[in-house]
């Protein structure tokens, strides 16, 4: 479950592009101002929290690959195996690994999201 796109650098570029050509309507510009403040806060959280998140993500992917008996433990291999379907017992174990990781990702992307 890598951090989603747009990546941090893509978001920085998107904010810069808007600032170069802001909307002429002040109400619309205020709305985009809120979006920019939201994204800047997200970027600050990502800078702080993403190293730990990525470390935990690697561990969850490895443990999930072990549960499924996969030789390789990378996100793409795991996604391919998941797409083939997972047996109920393994599914319970996998859900218990991925739900906390999803919460950790929300702590970066939207910590106010009601859980």
């Amino acid at each position: 479950m890598p951090l989603n796109r747009p990546t941090a650098s893509e978001l920085v570029a998107a904010i810069a592009a808007y600032r170069q050509q802001p909307d002429a309507d002040s109400r619309v510009d205020d709305y985009y101002g809120k979006i920019i403040r939201h994204l800047e806060a997200l970027l600050a959280r990502e800078a702080t929290l993403s190293p730990r998140y990525q470390k935990n993500e690697r561990e969850v992917i490895k443990q999930s690959a072990d549960i499924l008996g996969l030789k390789d433990s990378d996100a793409a291999t795991l996604a391919e195996a998941f797409s083939q379907g997972v047996l109920p017992d393994a599914l319970q174990k996998i859900l218990s690994l991925w739900l906390p990781l999803a919460e950790e990702k929300l702590a970066i992307d939207n910590p106010r999201y009601p859980l």
């Binding site: 796109r5 739900l99 990702k105």
Partner: peptide, 29 residues
């Protein structure tokens, strides 16, 4: 999000929506 990333809709709002995918991943689980 990809309508922004692929240059079809140059909207900051569209870009921001991409990071709401994390909400849907949590909700799906």
């Amino acid at each position: 999000a990809y309508s922004y990333l692929r240059g079809h809709v140059p909207s900051l709002e569209r870009a921001a929506i991409g990071r709401r995918v994390a909400e849907t991943e949590y909700d799906m689980l």
